[in-house]
Computed example of a mutant assay.
Amino acid sequence: MSSQGPYELPTHVQSALTPLNEKLVTDRRGSTVWNVQTPTGRFAVKLGYPTQTHAWTALAPAREATILRQLIATEHVRFGTWEKGTWSAQPWREGISLYDRWEPHRRSGKPTTPRVGEALSCALALANLHEHGWAHGDVQPNHFVIGAGGTFLIDLGLARGGEVPEAYDFRYRGCLVHYEAPEISRSILESGTAVPTKEADVYALGASLFISATGWRHVSYPDDADRRDQRQAIVDKPHRPITVPGMLGKLIEQMMSREPADRPTSSEVCEALRSAH
């Protein structure tokens, strides 16, 4: 089942896109991603393939594409199959991640206040997805791309909330644990799966803002802890003290409440940030 990337664009994918140039962006966790310039624009092209531990990664590009087609113009999203899984092409989003954008705050060595407007732009991107009925399921700093054209929330392969063809669907088994809400970690420990929710997305946004501003994960656990121990720490322990100054820190505290019902909605987060902006 397992494969090892990175993989070149298959011949039939090249024929479909007619690339003028292409650049390898990343290859990890069952996905090779290319930045591809075509006669009609620049695209992020993903090739999904199974890994030693996960078969679902082979389906993720097509699954994400079917969701994107419900959110943006369908002519801008293409997908299909290749010998090791599925592939997709979607508009390239130019910009810098939230984590990289806030690197000066982590480098300062003391608590500093990030720009509320940048936090607001991330919250707006998440709220827009929620307003369309979807929970993202994998909110993390590197999935917020901040650029001149706005802030985009990318990587929707794990999102839940609408119709997904059965051929490309798979069960949700959690996200990057550094941003996982306690109830998601608990469910995965107990049953192996969970249901992504908007409330868990809000927690993950708070954890994303926190780590981007401070460099600290939301809950303390050893760097070499295995995934199960990481999740157990999230279930058992409180989150770290929120050291981000001002109203942003207080808002992050609310977003990372242990009880989902106590967290503000993404729209309420936007309202609070607008008031402070």
Rank of each mutant, 00 (worst) to 15 (best):
V116K: 06
S15M: 12
K198P: 00
E183F: 11
A159I: 05
V177Y: 00
E199N: 08
F170P: 01
A65Q: 02
G85N: 05
A200Q: 05
A272H: 13
H76P: 00
T26H: 07
S108L: 13
E131C: 03
D155P: 02
P111Y: 07
D229I: 11
Q254V: 02
L189R: 13
D262T: 06
S31A: 15
T32S: 03
L273G: 04
L176D: 11
H143Y: 06
T265Q: 06
H12K: 12
R227V: 14
H277R: 14
P241H: 13
E180W: 05
D155H: 03
S267P: 00
K110L: 07
G147E: 06
V116N: 01
K198F: 01
P264M: 06
G150C: 09
R101K: 10
S212G: 03
V195T: 15
L153F: 05
S208V: 09
D236M: 12
R107F: 06
V25I: 14
D229P: 00
A159N: 07
A148Y: 03
A194N: 03
P222D: 05
S108V: 07
H105I: 07
T151I: 08
A58Y: 13
E118C: 01
D262H: 15
P50Q: 09
S121V: 04
P6R: 10
W82E: 02
L153G: 00
V244F: 05
L124D: 01
R115Q: 14
G30Y: 12
N142T: 11
E64H: 13
V177M: 01
A135S: 12
L120Y: 08
W216Y: 09
T86E: 01
V177E: 04
P241N: 10
R160Q: 13
T81D: 03
G192S: 11
R186V: 03
S220F: 13
Q140L: 06
W216K: 11
R107P: 00
S121F: 10
I234N: 00
T18W: 02
A194E: 04
T243R: 13
L126I: 04
D226K: 13
S266H: 11
L17H: 03
I146T: 00
T81P: 00
P39T: 05
P61S: 09
D226C: 11
G85S: 08
G109I: 12
T53M: 09
A159P: 02
F170A: 02
P6Y: 06
G109K: 08
E190Q: 15
K84E: 04
R240V: 15
V45A: 02
E64P: 11
D229S: 15
P182Y: 09
T57S: 15
D138G: 06
L129C: 02
R42Y: 02
H218F: 13
T57P: 00
K250Y: 03
H277W: 12
Y203V: 11
A16K: 15
L120D: 06
A60V: 12
G215H: 07
A55I: 13
C270D: 05
R29Y: 12
V195M: 10
T38Q: 07
Q37F: 03
P260S: 05
A272E: 13
I146Q: 01
T113L: 15
P238W: 07
